[in-house]
């Protein structure tokens, strides 16, 4: 019984791996999720470079709650030495996540000098 089901299980696991991307590593180091917002689920950040060479980041956030959720997002942009760039884009942004929906949080680098980022999620008020 066990012997027969093992290959099936392996097949099933393999199929699952093909059809869906691997789950986000618990705690992408670039996303800082404070305890106050851990009840939300966050996708892995999708990072692209725009036509002008600036990085753009998208993160999907699911609000599973029955009520809207106030979210505060702060994105720091880092240069090649890992130092934060002084920019208005790093000021906190407030979004209200409608109940039981997915919201895409976007952030654009202020200049092509930005090589990396750090996005902090916290409760809005």
């Amino acid at each position: 019984m066990i012997r027969r089901s093992l290959p099936l299980l392996a097949l099933g696991l393999g199929l699952a791996a093909c059809s869906t991307p691997p789950p986000p590593p618990p705690g992408d180091p670039r996303l800082i999720i404070t305890p106050a917002v851990q009840s939300l689920s966050f996708s892995a950040p999708v990072v692209n470079a725009g036509p002008d060479g600036r990085l753009r980041v998208n993160v999907n956030v699911v609000n599973p709650h029955g009520g809207d959720f106030p979210l505060r997002i702060q994105t720091d942009w880092l240069d090649e030495t890992g130092r934060p760039l002084p920019t208005l884009q790093s000021r906190p942004v407030f979004r209200s996540l409608a109940r039981q929906t997915v919201t895409t949080i976007e952030a654009d680098a202020p200049s092509p000098r930005a090589r990396d980022f750090r996005m902090t999620f916290d409760i809005g008020n």
Binding site: D52, L88, Q89, P110, S111
Partner: peptide, 8 residues
């Protein structure tokens, strides 16, 4: 300032 920083 922000536009200057963008390099554009």
């Amino acid at each position: 300032v922000e536009l200057n920083n963008s390099g554009r």
